[in-house]
Amino acid sequence: MRELSLHILDVLENSIEAGATRIELLIEEDLEKDFLRIVIRDNGRGMSEELARQVLDPFVTTRTTRHVGLGLPLFAAAAERCNGELRIQSKPGVGTTVLATFQHNHIDRAPLGDLAGTLMAAILSEREMDIHYKHTADGRAFELDTAEVRRVLGDVPLSHPKVRQWLESTLAEGLASVQSPDVT
């Protein structure tokens, strides 16, 4: 995929499919150490040790609509191309954590891309869950927790057009404040 944010969206969709009600997305950019870390942690149904080992094989999937699952293998390949790796920790009934690391400066590292779009696509999921997003880059930080937003909103859903616009602009502003122009 062209952007790491598309891989992130893909993993978020996995978490949603796994019945997660809370997902944490942590992105850590350290230019000095030339390091990028992406962590997606959910409280979904989790996987057995055996399945967790197998999911990086494109011909293993939990879906029933077809017999190949490319999401995680593609993400792993993207990390490995950039002197990084992808690790999966999972426990049935507890949840799954996907951790991807990259050499920040690596010539093959895809840009993070449209993270706001990725978050919007996940937040607007038909299945209700909360996402806690935390992004740090060289001392700057941005954080948004939809659980917090929901508390303020009461019975107004996140998908309400007015809330949607608030989320879009808040995410855009937050991301602009954390990402300097030369870091995408």
């Binding site: 303020v152 608030w166 808040t170």
Partner: peptide, 22 residues
């Protein structure tokens, strides 16, 4: 979390939204 001002916007928005939600 977003700035306080932004959260204030959200609270105001909630009141607006509640009226037309049904």
């Amino acid at each position: 979390m977003p700035k306080l001002k932004t959260l204030e916007d959200l609270k105001r928005l909630r009141e607006e939204a509640q009226q037309d939600i049904k």
